[in-house]
Design a protein around this nucleic acid. Sequence first.
DNA 1: AATGAATGAGGCTTCATTCAT
DNA 2: GATGAATGAAGCCTCATTCAT
Lengths: 199, 199, 199, 199
Amino acid sequence: MARLRENPEVRRAQIFDAAILMLGEQGFNGITVQRLAQRCGVSNAGLLHYFPSKDEILLGVLDELERREADIVVPLIAAAADKASEGAGASRGLVLELLRSMLERFAARPDLGRFLVVMQAEALHREHLANAWFRDREAMTIDLFADLLATLAAEPRRTARQLVALLYGLGQIWLRGDRDFDLLATWDSAVAALIPERR
Amino acid sequence: MARLRENPEVRRAQIFDAAILMLGEQGFNGITVQRLAQRCGVSNAGLLHYFPSKDEILLGVLDELERREADIVVPLIAAAADKASEGAGASRGLVLELLRSMLERFAARPDLGRFLVVMQAEALHREHLANAWFRDREAMTIDLFADLLATLAAEPRRTARQLVALLYGLGQIWLRGDRDFDLLATWDSAVAALIPERR
Amino acid sequence: MARLRENPEVRRAQIFDAAILMLGEQGFNGITVQRLAQRCGVSNAGLLHYFPSKDEILLGVLDELERREADIVVPLIAAAADKASEGAGASRGLVLELLRSMLERFAARPDLGRFLVVMQAEALHREHLANAWFRDREAMTIDLFADLLATLAAEPRRTARQLVALLYGLGQIWLRGDRDFDLLATWDSAVAALIPERR
Amino acid sequence: MARLRENPEVRRAQIFDAAILMLGEQGFNGITVQRLAQRCGVSNAGLLHYFPSKDEILLGVLDELERREADIVVPLIAAAADKASEGAGASRGLVLELLRSMLERFAARPDLGRFLVVMQAEALHREHLANAWFRDREAMTIDLFADLLATLAAEPRRTARQLVALLYGLGQIWLRGDRDFDLLATWDSAVAALIPERR
DNA sequence: AATGAATGAGGCTTCATTCAT
DNA sequence: GATGAATGAAGCCTCATTCAT
């Protein structure tokens, strides 16, 4: 057998990508350590050398995702807050722009988007491994949106929920329909409608 | 063993309910013929006496759901169309009402809602047993909405997608958050924003 | 495949016998559900249809053994007690006879003897599945012997321990040496020496 | 990782001790190269650097034990033979003393005793790695005892077997019962009974 | 209608071992 | 001397399914 010794960092990244792909296709219960290993070009046992168990694979992926997300989202928000401080009048445009950039990230990595959409639904159940992760993530997102909308909407939390719902739903429809419509335009128009213009 | 001979119709219904519940919790790959049988108070083989295979259980449930849904939705739409024909001016109110009634049905049966939300995401994958079913259902729903919005929105299909997305997303958030906000009010306010008032 | 449907009682008995044989040869960690099943002419899963797990196989065997042993030993002791009550002077002979009959049972079923010898040693460890079973059994045996020796030995518990030790040890030596000496005679002579004749 | 470079001799001794301990607890099939390595503070591969395989670990331990034992027992016997040659009358006392010293060694190192007791039983099976070792050892011990008893017992081999049996059995009972009785006294009294006093 | 017996396939994980560093 | 990477081979158990009763 070709016992290919890879750089551990590379291997881990490779496993992450494959896991995101496969989990997004088949869900946690649908994948197999075996098949995941196969796609990574590693043996069954070889894969478990990096992650002690199947559970840890999912948790590891979530962990990594969280880290990456933080690296990206935090600066975005900081930037928005920065600009916003210059003048209150600018904030609606800034918020729309921020929201748009979130969807752009989604659209840029459909595999990741599918992973999130699928796992999120699977994790609805309280006993699911990833339930807490998605609960927390959702709560944080709603909180964040509500903060951003504080002065823009009469009921910021409600509008925040609507936006998050739209994000989930449009993403899913877009993925299911083989991306056969303009996701960004649909999103923008809905956002514009949901965040009322100041008079 | 108490070999309880049940009325077959009753048993089937009982199995349907249990299947919807468990599938909504754990997904198709998460459930087991064994465990489903257990919850129905039937033996492993006893369950498969009603459904030839695990696949058939899911397909059977979807079939049944489709039938029930048709029984309910068709009259609703007919009624709306009926009223609408009386005068074009009335239709916005009618559409809002119709949409609201759809969400009311969702809210009334959270187990069923969860089943749909979870299976729908799981079925994103082209190879999934239920992929076609959910694709068709979504296409029909979008078509239906687009028709209803024909004269109410500038881009009826786009608005239809937004509404469907909102439906999915709000449902999921509501379920995940233990129904800790007013689903109907949130929906109504979003719908009102997305379907512009005629001037 | 020849899907031979056996009488469940027969199957269980068959599994018991095979388990005793194999456990006596290879110990608990040395056997395999697979191999045990093979020797019983059942499939892997077929075996686990009778015992939910490998652990349960051992526990089941011990349970069954306990039951059988009780059926045999209790009457023996009752008989001894009965005879003994006729006249205290007779008891030494009775005790020797009783002990001899225990060893005869051991000699009659070397497979069972080996099972007990091997598992007993393996179960020395506190964490072993069968530790409690063998502890209890040993305590009971020592208690029983001590009772029988109450009037025959100056220190009944000490003599009881010596007898039990001899029982274990001779059994093991006999088995290891391919039964190349007269077990009963060796035992009788030791017992006679350890239980002093009344003067 | 702290790649602690240890003196090889020290490492080997350390591994021996850990192996004796773990083998005595869990038997050969119960231990794992991994776990043994862990207890030694070495990596998996690090352990196998000292012993080419798991089998070799056991064989190595037995080898080492044999060497140590020879170093101790040979002088003892020589001394006994020496004294014995002075006058035949002294030999019963000398034999009792010699036997006692064997048990004292057992009592002084319960971990080693447990190793011997457990492996000995496990090795009953002809196919066992250590079967030959324990057979040889037992034969030698019986031979030795029989020699010592040549003039002291009517049937030296029989008495020798009884003593060896007692040695095994008492050791095991003592270990199982958490050493809750006086091992040496129990042994001495049995030995005294089994080796008849000269008249 | 309903079940227990039985099974082949496969899933997660552990294990002893090899090899390059 | 010592290790991490990697693996093939099991091992226990679960699963969907079949079949005779």
